[in-house]
């Protein structure tokens, strides 16, 4: 079994010293794995990613309990730029590129320590090979790119950072299914060639379950389910509430729908 890269243990995040966003989250990612995090709006998915990638002064948020260990070092409550330099890079849900900079300038922004100029250029050309489309758009202002191109650029800038653990928040948000499929395929190729680990946060369960080696389901800031692809895909609740396939895919009348959820227990 490959080594443990990221280990989140009983994490609790509190906003503005009063609002608890997530509680008792325990999650781990092994080297080369794709870990999916599923959940509805407000389940705490983005908070989890933000906690791993570091909070900013203005967020007024803190990890109050538990720990985040990356490559054997505790990183909870570190500054975002310090965390980025250890190799964790977040592709946020929105505002993922600098809109007034060109594509080439966006790629020049990330600070990667211990990377000489020549190696950096090599890395940039390598990244461009994954997204040949960006090469043609080098001098275009990033604010004028389409949603899919922006997502490509965001992933490309993250890769220039010398990323080891890529956190992707809502890859599929606001994109056409064709574009999502294309991006996913590229992400898989990147993962294979660069050997990076990916944590994928998704509302779209179908997208996440299709690629993730291991997934966690978040509800109300807690983990309610976890398991590998086979276990989750066969779980009745996932089928019904996240994939909408109750009744074995048969059509059914709204009259029969009972909108209640089975009680869940959570760990921690």
């Amino acid at each position: 079994m490959s080594t443990l890269l990221l280990c989140v243990d009983k994490l609790e995040v509190v906003y503005q010293r009063a609002i608890t966003a997530v509680q008792g989250i325990t999650l781990s990612a092994r080297e080369g794995q794709i870990v999916g995090v599923l959940g509805t709006n407000g389940a705490g998915k983005s908070t989890l990613l933000r906690a791993i990638s570091g909070f900013h002064g203005i967020d007024d948020a803190r990890v109050t309990e538990g720990s985040i260990v990356f490559k054997g070092r505790r990183i909870e409550n570190s500054e975002p730029h310090a965390i980025a330099q250890t190799g964790i890079v977040l592709v946020p849900e929105r505002d993922k590129v600098f809109p007034n900079l060109t594509v080439a300038e966006n790629l020049a922004v990330p600070v990667a320590p211990k990377l000489a100029g020549s190696e950096r250029r090599r890395r940039e050309t390598q990244v461009m090979q994954f997204f040949p489309k960006l090469g043609a758009l080098r001098n275009r202002t990033a604010g004028l790119l389409s949603g899919g191109e922006r997502q490509m650029l965001a992933i490309a800038t993250a890769l220039v950072c010398r990323v080891e653990l890529l956190l992707v928040d809502e890859l599929s948000l606001g994109l056409a299914p064709v574009v999502v499929d294309d991006l996913m395929a590229r992400l898989m190729q990147i993962k294979r060639e660069l050997g990076i680990t990916i944590v994928l946060v998704e509302q779209s369960a179908a997208v996440a379950l299709a690629v993730a080696d291991y997934s966690y389901v978040l509800e109300n800031g807690r983990i309610v389910l976890d398991g590998d692809k086979a276990r989750l895909a066969s779980h009745a609740d996932i089928q019904e509430f996240y994939l909408g396939n109750a009744n074995g895919g048969q059509r059914r009348s709204y009259r029969d729908v009972k909108q209640y959820r089975r009680s869940r227990r959570w760990y921690g």
Binding site: D59, H81, A84, P92, F98, L101, E105, P110, A112
Partner: peptide, 15 residues
Amino acid sequence: RAAGQNPLLAAQRGI
């Protein structure tokens, strides 16, 4: 310029 536009994203990119 990047930091001026979006300080949070700039910090997340190691600045």
